[in-house]
Structure formats: C-alpha cells, structure tokens
Amino acid sequence: MRQLPCPFCGARELREFVFHKTLPAAASATADASADEFARTYLRVADPQLSVEHWQHVHGCRAWLLVRRNPSTGAVLAVQMLSGTAP
C-alpha cells in the first residue's frame, strides 16, 4: 500500500515523503575509517526482499525515518524514527 505509517503523523500518502538513501550492507569493521565511509557512501547490496532506507516526511512533520520495505512488492515492513549515535 502506498502509504507510510509515520510514527508521529500516522498513515500518510507516499507522496508526502522523500526517499534519501539506501543503507549499505553492514559496513565492514575495518580499521580504515575512510574505507568504511566509502562503503557507506557508495556500495549497496541488493536484496530483492528487503531494502533499508532513510526517508523524510518532508510534506508533514519533517521527521526522518528508518524504513524497511520489500522493493519487489512495494510492501512497507516497518517504519521507525531515525536515530543513532554521534559519529
């Protein structure tokens, strides 16, 4: 269904949200920080069943969201507020 359940606003139409990026597969934990940064920035592992993404509810509450979707069906699997720790 082409709605995203915004944790703050409730279900809203997809057109209110803007996709930003896909998360790469877990970046390798090498000592080389720039190599990690490179993988994070450039590399993706395609999984036809699961895409983990950053979206923003730009045309609503502007919350940044962590969205899990199935890119083969468009099904939204989970949405949560984006949060993390300082770099």
């Binding site: 606003c9 409730g10 045309h59 609503g60 502007r62």
Partner: peptide
C-alpha cells in the same frame, strides 16, 4: 478526516 484522525493538529502540505 484521515489526516486529523485521532489527533487535534497535523503538519501538512
């Protein structure tokens, strides 16, 4: 109706 379901205010475009 849908946007304001279960809430009193909402951010919209």
């Amino acid at each position: 109706g849908a946007v304001l379901e279960n809430r009193e205010c909402a951010a919209v475009t």
